[in-house]
Amino acid sequence: MVNDQAQMYTLEGFAAGVLMLITAYLVLGTTTVYTPGDVHIADMQLEQLGSDALAMMDTPDYYGDTSKLENIILGQSYSHAWFYANFTESLKRITESTDTCVNDLQYNASVYYRTDSGEVASYPLSSSIRSDLVSREPAVRVTRWVSVDADTANIPGIPAADQRDPQLLLVEVLLWRG
């Protein structure tokens, strides 16, 4: 014979079970969402850092002068080594900067241009990729337009047939914590 006593206890047991299940679901959901959210915040800061560093390089010291970024592309007074030194320094320009694993930023910069036939081609500008690199974090992308206005445009890296004066180039940098 089925006993119909203690119905309240049974109901309470059911309610508690449902409550615990929903709480467990929410807690598990929280942990899975938290990691990508955290990565996005770091990516956002990295993107801002990168575009600020490029903007600094593309700003001439005084009005009418060519910027350092333009000089590097034209292969004039500033070399690719200068790009490496200045770009990495700009990224780490914070108080008490040290090369900790958090602050270890890597980049790969290319220049994109339009060829005479209307295709988009590229050549590598500078990169900090080390030989001992075994894995890498997801990268963010920052870009900067550079107009080359030299009368005798001679850009090392672009074939002579694809060089024009004036010409718009796009410097694209991939940035990641390595």
Partner: peptide
Amino acid sequence: LALIITQSTVVGQTTSEAVL
């Protein structure tokens, strides 16, 4: 409280995604 915690992390993700 658990509901609020889940919402706060989602908000952090969506704002940084929107900025990116």
